[in-house]
Simulated scan of single mutants.
Amino acid sequence: MSRTVTLVLVDPAGRPLGALPPYDVPEPWWQQAGSIVDGARHRHGVDVAVLRLLTADRPEPPGGHLTYLAEVAAPPAVPLAPATMDLAPHPLRAPWAEPGGPARSLAWATGELDRLGRLVTAVAQHRTWNLSAIWRLDGPDGSAWLKQVPAFFRHEAAVLRWLATAAPDTTPTLLAADDTGRVLLDHIPGDDRYVADPAERAAIAAAHHTLQRRAADDVAALVAAGVPDWRGPALARWIRDQLAPHDTAVVADLLGGLDDRLDQVRDCGLPDTLVHGDLHPGNVRGDGRRATFIDWGDAFVGHPAFDILRLTETLDAATAGPLLDAWAARWRADAPGSDPRRAVDLLRPVAPLRMAAVYAMFLAGIEPSEHPYHLGDVPACLKRAAALA
Rank of each mutant, 00 (worst) to 15 (best):
A103N: 01
N130M: 11
A40V: 08
E112P: 06
H90M: 11
G142N: 09
W135A: 03
R58P: 01
D141G: 14
A88C: 01
L113I: 05
S105E: 06
L137M: 12
F152T: 01
A107C: 05
L137T: 12
T165P: 00
R93A: 08
L116S: 08
T110N: 00
V149N: 00
V149Q: 08
R161D: 14
E71A: 02
T110V: 07
P99T: 04
P59R: 02
L54M: 06
L131V: 12
F153L: 10
G139F: 08
R41Y: 05
S132V: 08
G111I: 04
F152N: 00
D169I: 02
S35C: 07
A144H: 07
D47C: 10
P82W: 11
G142H: 07
D114R: 13
A77Q: 15
T171L: 02
D57Q: 11
A77S: 15
I36H: 09
Y68I: 08
V78L: 14
A74Y: 10
A73W: 06
T67Y: 06
T171A: 15
M85K: 08
R93Q: 09
A73G: 15
A124K: 14
S105F: 02
V72F: 01
D169N: 12
S143T: 14
P91I: 12
D47M: 08
R58S: 10
A94R: 14
W145K: 00
H65I: 09
F152W: 02
H126M: 06
D138T: 15
R104P: 03
R154K: 00
L53G: 02
A56M: 05
L53V: 00
S105K: 02
